[in-house]
Simulated assay, not measured.
Amino acid sequence: MSRKTRLQDIVLVMRRHEGPVSGTTLAETLGISLRTLYQDIAVLKAVGADIEHLPGTGYTLAPGVLLPALMLTDEQLDALSLGLVKVQDAEGPLAAPAAQLRDKVADALPDEQAQRLTGLKSDQGSAGLAAANPVSEGPWGSDRGEETATGELVFYTHPLSRGSIVHWMLEELGVAYRTVVLDYGTSMKAPDYLAINPMGKVPAIRHGDVVVTETAAICAYLADAFPQAGLAPPLALRGDYYRWLFFAAGPLETAVSLNGLLGVYPDERQQMKLGCGSLQAVADTLAGAVAGKRYIAGDAFSAADIYVGAHLSWGLQFGSIPWRPEFEAYCAGLNERPARQRSEAFLQQAMAQGA
């Protein structure tokens, strides 16, 4: 079941209850886990649904709540329109349903996109579509990159893990994905999951036949797999993007793990043998990278901001990263992003439930 379908079903189930409905009842009715329900409730609230949680009682939905209009990129809209046109032109048994579907989708779209959907003529064909709709320039320019990969996107995680970084990334992409929440020491070490990641750790993703582990690698892969989201710059502009994405994955993670988790403070000789050097050197270097900047790799938000920003926010919150005014200013801007707030709401809900 896609997230969009689940969101619609949650609203419908809540409408059928005159009073508050418990999370357990909602989850059982929809056939989903409580963690998935909490995540979906957070998404609904983030997009404006007036849902109130009454402790010990359940959830209530304000009258008249509607889901937001269908959100499609221009490329997705053109692909849908062209496909429906071709089915209509075939004059087979699906021609009439295709026309009906086109009208229904148009009704759910903003006026400008509805006109775009219904205005494409069958004689345009693929070449006409390309000519009529040139590649639009995003924050990085007109380099669209590789074609989007296909297949179901499955996200393996635990709320209290680095999976929260990938969760933020997925929310920024705005694509459909299925979440599989695993428990430490049990399902995370089960044979089915070890076939995905022999390390028995999360996060991991499976996209069609492609499996990717390691958080930074997942973020880099997703940015390339879904170029329409604009979360990676063109190749010619990826110097800082790659540099800081993997600086955080390498020196920053290593230094924080040594100092904050293990209480190990290498001396000068030992620092020479370590790629991270000292935590102070790492912090000073990263502070210089974000000083006076809204984004770490140019003028547009990217997957590098997700990875670096998540580590800095977490480190500042728990004291594992030395405080710098540059870090505080940089993270403040990132934390205002709706996708970040949705992923954070899921984390806070999971912590409140004792995950």
Rank of each mutant, 00 (worst) to 15 (best):
P134H: 10
P325I: 14
Y241M: 06
G128F: 13
P191L: 08
G48M: 09
G275W: 04
K86Q: 14
G230A: 12
E152F: 01
A283P: 05
Q349W: 12
L61Y: 10
P325A: 09
E172K: 02
G56P: 01
L12Y: 07
L286T: 05
T36D: 11
A289L: 11
R178D: 13
P134S: 07
V154L: 13
P159R: 06
A95H: 04
A236E: 15
V202K: 07
S257T: 11
E137A: 14
T5C: 07
N197H: 10
I32Y: 10
E91K: 14
L61W: 10
Y38R: 15
G125S: 03
S126V: 14
R243V: 01
V181S: 12
A339V: 08
G200T: 09
P134Y: 13
P63Q: 06
L117N: 00
E152I: 07
A79Y: 12
Y38L: 12
C276K: 06
K45A: 12
Q271H: 01
T150K: 13
N133I: 03
V308K: 03
S313L: 05
Q39Y: 15
A99G: 14
G64M: 11
R16E: 15
A217N: 15
E28F: 08
E147W: 09
E52P: 07
L72N: 01
G23Y: 08
V154G: 01
L109E: 03
T5V: 12
R3I: 13
D89L: 07
L258A: 10
L80E: 05
A96E: 14
P322I: 03
L67E: 07
L82H: 12
Y221H: 15
T186Y: 06
K104W: 09
D78P: 00
H207M: 09
G333D: 13
Y59G: 04
L279R: 01
L170H: 00
P68L: 08
Q349G: 15
T150I: 10
T73M: 03
S33W: 08
M188P: 00
V154H: 05
G23F: 09
V105K: 00
G174I: 09
R15K: 15
P20S: 15
M169D: 02
D40T: 05
L70P: 01
K4T: 12
G208D: 08
S33M: 06
H207N: 02
L77Y: 04
E146L: 09
Y177K: 07
A289M: 06
P55V: 06
L258D: 03
L80M: 13
P159A: 02
K273P: 00
P198D: 05
A127G: 05
P139H: 10
G163C: 00
S161M: 06
A281G: 11
A289R: 02
R238L: 14
M351G: 02
Q113S: 09
L153Q: 01
A291E: 15
W323A: 13
G163K: 04
A249H: 07
A79W: 05
G208N: 03
S257C: 00
P93H: 06
G23K: 09
L37C: 03
L160M: 12
P338D: 11
A106I: 04
W323N: 10
V202M: 13
G277L: 10
A49R: 02
G275S: 03
I321E: 00
A217Q: 05
A95E: 02
P325Y: 10
Q317S: 14
L258F: 10
